[in-house]
């Protein structure tokens, strides 16, 4: 999902060739760039945008799963789902603070999300219609996120890389609990297996779209690769994901909804059918089935929480004043 963070990123810079060369030498030497280091404005802007979109994706990503917490079929499932959704909130917070080191405030980022100016991953604009979706989301959506996030642990920007290391440590649980849900359904009654298959049918293609446009259509990819913000192209990551996931579906006895999917011996990977990029761009531009609901829910949470934030600050101020008076 996170390569979608580059859509619309503007990596253009106006710095002198000497400055850019010096910076590039540091990157090529695998030096990490830290917040107070000198950096091209384009590098900073690209990161603010990408980390911000990544953070928004984690936060909005809590909604489709939060939808099922009260309806989880057992206490074990409920506890796991609750813990997963709480982790996603944590991921959002790690990422917001990484972005803040680049001089953008939490409030600015929140406003950009709520106004629709900032994007988040297109995947979260699809609805979670059945319990099986809690399994499929963990298995495929977190699975795709892991593919994207592991190379980000080596991103050239220190705070982003460090945040991703924490995130990656927690993601494995997300994917495994999801796969276990799908496995239980796939090995259950015919109706349960059908529910799992229906869910896979709906989530397969949107999951492939999480990796972003094909390399040939990805405008900002080259600069991000040169700056080592990105380590693999969209198509490379998508291919890795497909190759890892197909055998997992086979084990479950579920069918990937792509008639063109077949093993290609020569390349040592699967070939897949065409992706519906019209749908992708529609969803990215905010016309996904759940886009309005997602932002409405975030806006409601932000507005309803205003009095809490104000009261907490007022309380802190009162305590400070009392302490000064006592001194």
């Amino acid at each position: 999902m996170y390569s979608q963070g580059l859509i619309g990123a503007d990596g253009r810079t106006e710095e002198t060739p000497e400055f850019l060369e010096r910076f590039q030498r540091r990157i090529d030497a695998e030096e990490k760039i830290e917040p107070k280091d000198e950096m091209p404005e384009g590098y900073r802007r690209t990161l603010v945008r990408q980390i911000g979109q990544h953070a928004h994706s984690e936060i909005v990503g809590m909604l489709p799963e939060g939808n099922w917490i009260t309806r989880a079929p057992s206490l074990r499932r409920k506890a796991a789902l609750l813990a997963k959704v709480q982790d996603e909130g944590g991921h959002g917070l790690y990422l917001y603070s990484a972005a803040e080191t680049l001089g953008v405030s939490r409030e600015e980022m929140t406003e950009e999300l709520l106004s629709g100016k900032a994007k988040y991953s297109s995947i979260f604009n699809y609805p979670t219609l059945s319990w099986a979706d809690m399994g499929t989301v963990g298995w495929l959506v977190d699975g795709a996120a892991i593919m994207n996030q592991i190379p980000l642990c080596r991103c050239s920007f220190g705070p982003y890389a460090r945040a991703m290391i924490r995130v990656c440590k927690e993601e494995s649980f997300h994917q495994r609990q999801g796969y276990e849900i799908v496995m239980t359904l796939a090995q259950g009654t015919p109706a349960q297996k059908a529910m799992a298959q229906d869910s896979l049918n709906r989530w397969w293609w949107p999951s492939l779209m999480m990796f972003g446009p094909h390399d040939a259509d990805s405008q900002h990819s080259d600069q991000s690769m040169a700056w080592k913000i990105k380590r693999f192209t969209n198509d490379e990551l998508r291919q890795k994901f497909i190759d890892a996931t197909v055998p997992q579906a086979e084990y479950l006895g579920l069918t990937i909804p792509d008639p063109d999917l077949k093993w290609n011996e020569a390349k040592g990977g699967y070939d897949h059918g065409p992706i519906d990029w019209d749908e992708f761009w529609r969803v990215v531009k905010g016309h996904g089935p759940m886009a309005k609901d997602r932002i409405k829910a975030r806006k409601k949470a932000w507005d309803d929480g205003a009095w809490v934030r104000e009261a907490a600050l007022a309380h802190a101020e009162k305590r400070r004043a009392r302490k000064i008076a006592a001194e």
């Binding site: 944590g90 790690y94 603070s97 600050l313 309380h315 802190a316």
Partner: peptide, 24 residues
């Protein structure tokens, strides 16, 4: 050092730090 967070005062900062940075 593990990261940062926003909080109105030190009491809430400690509570949030526990939730955000010590879940495991």
């Amino acid at each position: 050092h593990v990261g940062s967070l926003h909080a109105a005062d030190e009491v809430m900062a400690l509570q949030s730090a526990r939730d955000v940075y010590t879940r495991r």
